[in-house]
Simulated assay, not measured.
Amino acid sequence: MCAIAVPENTADTELPFGITIFSLSDQEGEILGTAERFLQTQSIPFAVCGLHKKGFPLESQLTELKASYKESINTAPHYRLYRLDTVPEKPGMVYDDKKGAAIAVEIYELPVVSIGAFLQQVKKPLCIGDVELSDGRIVKGFLCEEYGLTNAKEMDEPFSALDPQTKADMQLLMRQIWQEEKPTVIFVTHDIEEAVFLSSKIYVLTQRPGTVKAEVPVLLPYDRDLSLKDTEEFIKLRKKVNQLIEHESLS
């Protein structure tokens, strides 16, 4: 006799994990082929929240390995999203059960036979871990290790209480610091004009529970002064973000 054991995507937690295929001693090649064909039918759900999402540059890393998009869903409200200082820039999702929120993710079915090849493409500070979804499911997905946040910053409405002139001065100072030191900054604001002027990418959030509704690239010159706010490109972008927020407030 000869035999081979293969993993299986069973949801039954009371039964042994996997399947064992038996055959006669001179049929090793046959059961190896059967096991290979069986594994090609097995997959795991995998959660992505950044450049691996549909239509983004790294989606091909999944599709080339025969992964298929299944659904869009939110995580449980226990995560925070940071903009990482990587090339290309990537978001990093970190578990935070005290100050976390629900994050919009996409679920792909990743073939079991492709997991090894996929893991080779995962670069630090990203890692693979358990991600809790809003419906209670636990799936594998991208997370960020804590050391990856060293150069990331969160700023929660720091200029909201300033008079208009001081606020404008602080915005210019913020841009100057960013251009000189190149830190990664997450800036939280309700001021649409401020968001467009300061950022290179804007995330528009939904109402409670807060999730990422839209990601808006800010394709404006890095070298900015206050005159930029009067340009056609700036006004058009400001209106686009405003429409997203107005639609959210009316929904």
Rank of each mutant, 00 (worst) to 15 (best):
M1C: 10
C2W: 00
C2F: 15
T10W: 00
E14N: 14
I19E: 09
I19V: 15
T20I: 06
L24K: 13
S25L: 13
D26F: 03
G29T: 12
G29E: 05
I31M: 00
L32V: 13
G33S: 15
G33Q: 11
R37G: 00
Q40T: 06
P45A: 08
A47K: 02
A47H: 08
G50C: 13
G50L: 10
K53M: 14
P57S: 01
P57M: 09
L58G: 00
S60L: 14
Q61V: 06
T63F: 08
K66D: 05
A67K: 01
S68H: 11
Y69P: 07
Y69N: 12
E71F: 00
S72W: 15
S72Y: 09
I73G: 04
N74R: 06
A76L: 05
A76R: 01
P77S: 11
R80A: 10
R83Q: 12
D85A: 12
K90H: 13
G92Q: 05
Y95G: 01
D96E: 04
D96H: 02
K98F: 13
K99S: 12
A102K: 02
V105A: 09
V105L: 05
E106M: 13
E106C: 08
Y108C: 09
V112Y: 07
V112N: 03
V112A: 03
V113R: 07
I115A: 03
I115W: 10
L119Y: 11
K123M: 06
P125A: 05
E132S: 07
L133E: 04
D135F: 06
R137A: 13
L149E: 00
T150W: 08
N151M: 00
E154W: 06
E154S: 00
E157S: 06
F159E: 05
P164L: 05
A168N: 13
A168Q: 11
L172P: 00
Q176N: 07
I177S: 11
E181A: 11
E181I: 03
P183T: 09
T184S: 14
T184N: 01
H190V: 03
E194G: 02
V196Y: 02
S200D: 15
K201S: 09
Y203W: 15
Y203P: 08
K213F: 14
K213L: 15
A214N: 09
E215G: 12
P217L: 12
P221G: 11
P221E: 08
R224A: 05
S227N: 14
L228W: 03
K229N: 06
T231E: 14
E232K: 03
I235K: 11
K239F: 11
S249G: 04
S251P: 01
